[in-house]
Design a protein around this nucleic acid. Structure first.
Length: 268
DNA sequence: ATACCGACCTGTCAGC
DNA sequence: TGCTGACAGGTCGGTA
């Protein structure tokens, strides 16, 4: 489900609501799939801990847990369908709820994930998912990331070891805005085009964050509110519909196993 | 290194 | 009213 703008929206909501709150107890469901760390490790790391703050690293949610001796971080990756919401304890526990952390304030932090592609873990060393943040990377650094790579530019954009946080929607949308086809080999793209792509990607991500992300089917923020960037999509999910610039039908191909949408006229 | 592919799961929707 | 297949914001591991 969630790419950088969605995770950023969720993290801002979580930080506003649970930073400074303390985890009193943790319930973890019996489905083992969403856990990278053992359930007992996660429960022990959370229980009794104050959440100093919540931040984002790529598509990961990072809960900074306070501790005198060994500060730890609770890392949550939402996968495709994961949700992290703050609920009143009286609220109905929906199907596919895998973890509930009861907070001192009386509210609950709930992790819900129907497809169970999400991952929960606890780390004590500094968490580093690798890759650079697209909203922080300079143009020079951005261009250098792709230097000499023969892989299609879209595959490179999705590679979290290069850039962290870009997913299928924002890769397609930024490539459209930069006028580059998803299959173009990175090594054949000019500096001027990379410069355009760098700008387009940052603009798309910033605008999406401003609109609370894209809600396609089930994405909601920490409040349960939907985003609005889906109404700004120019190619994603628009196969067969006319290009908003030139009216050619938007094409859909499969690249790296993912649907990829582009305009054959506007993108080269 | 790099590519493609299936696997991991459940849910939804279109078509028959 | 089924049933079947395609598809879904992500990542990982195996294979050429």
């Amino acid at each position: 489900m969630p790419e950088l703008p969605e995770v950023e929206t969720i993290v801002r909501g979580l930080d506003k609501r649970v930073a400074g709150d303390t985890v009193e107890s943790v319930w973890i469901g019996s489905k083992p799939q969403p856990l990278k760390s053992p359930a007992s490790v996660i429960a022990r790391a959370l229980e009794g801990k104050r959440i100093a703050r919540v931040r984002r690293a790529g598509k990961h949610i990072v809960f900074e847990l306070e501790a005198e001796a060994h500060p730890a971080q609770w890392i949550v990756h939402l996968g495709m369908t994961g949700r992290m919401v703050v609920s009143e304890s009286a609220a109905e526990v929906v199907k596919h709820t895998h973890l509930i952390a009861k907070l001192a304030s009386g509210r609950e932090l709930r992790f819900i994930d129907p497809r169970m592609f999400g991952k929960l873990s606890v780390v004590t060393a500094g968490f580093d998912p690798g890759g650079v943040e697209p909203l922080e990377v300079t143009e020079e650094r951005f261009i250098a990331l792709f230097h000499g790579r023969k892989t299609p530019i879209k595959c490179a954009l999705l590679n979290q070891k290069l850039l962290r946080g870009v997913g299928n929607i924002y890769a397609d949308e930024s490539l459209f805005r930069a006028g580059i086809r998803p299959r173009r080999r990175a090594s054949t793209i000019t500096r001027a085009q990379f410069s355009k792509l760098h700008r387009a990607l940052r603009e798309v991500l910033r605008k999406a964050i401003a609109l609370g992300g894209s809600s396609i089917s089930d994405y909601v923020d920490a409040d349960g509110s939907e985003g609005f960037f889906q109404f700004q999509h120019r190619v994603y999910g628009r196969e067969g519909e006319p290009c908003l610039v030139c009216k050619s039908p938007i094409r859909r191909i499969v690249l790296a196993g993912r649907s990829s949408h582009y305009c054959a006229t506007c993108q080269r």
